[in-house]
Structures are given as C-alpha cells and as structure tokens.
Amino acid sequence: MTELIKAKVSELLANQTADRVLGWKKGEFFYDETPAVFQAEELDDLVYDGFSAPNLSKYLIKESKKEGKVIALLKPCDTYSFNQLIMEHRINRDNVYVVGVPCRGNLDINKIREKGIKGIQSIKEQGDELIIETIYGTKTLPREEVILDRCLCCKGSQHMVADEVIESGEPAWEAKADRFEMVTKLENMTSDERFAFWRGELSKCIRCNACRNVCPACSCLQCVFDDPASKVQAKSNADDFEENMFHIIRAFHVAGRCTDCGECSRVCPQGIPLHLLNRKFIKDIDTFYGEYQAGADIEAKGPLTEFNKDDVEPSIVKERGGK
C-alpha cells in the first residue's frame, strides 16, 4: 500500500499538481507514526499501514495557509474532519489536493501486547494476518482481533471528500458495532453511579492536553483554557473537580462539530474514554434534531448552529421529541 501511495504522490509532485505531501512517518517506535510533510526527495520516509492512525485534517489548517499546494492523504474517517474544517473556513481548500487512501482499520499495539506477545520488533500485515517479529521468534495474529476500538464502529469506506482516491483492491474494513452501547449504559446508571464513573475516569487525567491538541474540532487560535483573560485557566488549578471540568467543557465546545473520529481517546496516555462524552452529545443531537453526522455533507446545517422557521422553542424541544 505504501508503494502505491508513493507512486501516486510522486506522479502528482512530478506533474506539479502540488509541491509537498502531508502524510505519516515512523516515530520513535515503528507503531508510533506521526504526521509529517514531505518534499519530493523525502518520500522514502513516507509510510502507510495499520499504525497510520493520526487524523491529518487538523494539520491542514496551518499547512493550507502556506504558499503552494499540499497533497493531503486522508483516510475515509479523516475526510469528515476535513469537511468540518472547510465548513468552518479553517482550511484553504484551494491549497489542498486531497488523496483518499483506503483504510483497513487501525491497529492497537496495546491489544497486541495483551495477547501476551512481548519483545515486538516489527509487524508486517499480510492479508488478514499480522506477522509479528519478536525477540522470541515470529508470531502471527488475526488482524481483526487487534483493531483499535474506534474502528470497531467504522463510518465506512467512502471518502466524503477527495480529489482522487487510491484503490487498493483489498476488501475495505467496515465494522458496524453499536457506537452508543456504552453511552446507553451510562444513561441507565443512577446519577450517583454516573458521577462516580466519570470522577473515576477523569481523575486519571494528567492534563497533558493531548486530547485537545489532537482534536480537529479543538483548533481555536487561542484555547480558552490557555487564555488568562478567560479566567478559567487559573480555575482548573483550584481543585481536582475544576480540573475534571476541563473535559466536560471541551465536550460542550465541540458538540455538534465533533465528527467522532476518536482521536481524543486514542491519544490519551491514561486511557480515559473521552469519546463517550462526545458520543453522548451526538446521541442527544440525533434524538432531538434528527440524525446528523458532522462533516458528512458540507452543505448540511449544523444542528446546534442553524435554525429555521419550523423550529420550536427550546423549552419544548424535548416535550415534542425534537420535532
């Protein structure tokens, strides 16, 4: 797959469709891939495999403001975020050439380790199998057993936006688990149980800000949590409860704009299921205003930011079941 992509982007760079590429390169570890911009001569470092999890859309906010045109490699689910940022005028579309890349679901290194596989040196994807080289010899695993949680409720293999799509010929990954299963469980808890659940989860937070920094919807020029004038910055230091509120406020800020890309939970070093906060909002929006997928349709009206003359008073939204 990496070779296919390299061939395509080389061609596009050669014919001057664009002058650079936003893709992934290996990080400190092979499974720790990181976004990077490549010039034509640097393409050797470009990789694309099950660990190319980072959603590149957010990086285009800065990248698309620069001179020239950039090729953006977007997985199907990344295109939702891209569209959402286009809707919010954050990406200069003219400076981006979107190449849709197929996705077979991202891999979760922790799930691989949980299978008892230690001393991992490299992983090769071969069809539906993973060939894992370890210091104790070669091991194999079925790919589908170690898929990242977020990919278990995949939005599908379609790119919502692309100037060009690379076809791999491999079957697309389209798992359709109920993404609201855990939300429903939380809804069914008593408020005390739910409070205890979230206090437990959120108290693990070390405020590394990884969730915010990776989130394509959290792309303010200056975040209110970093802005001394907002006065909330100092508050989060006041006590651990104020600290916990960070995530809840963040969920409010991205409500209606969150595409459910799952990056927040993926990057959380403490394993906090942050995406559940967003999914609760998504579920409520679906219930009250009709099903809505942020970023699916660039012409769509955001459920929380648009109104029309058939809307009811907010106080009776619930009473009428959102109609």
Partner: peptide, 15 residues
C-alpha cells in the same frame, strides 16, 4: 479579533 477563528458559527446562530 485576535481570538476569532473565523468559523462563522456566530453568524449562523445570529437571529
């Protein structure tokens, strides 16, 4: 103006 992202959400909600 220094904090405005230019996202247009305020414009959309303004009745």
């Amino acid at each position: 103006e220094l904090r405005c992202n230019g996202c247009s959400n305020c414009e959309k909600v303004c009745p």
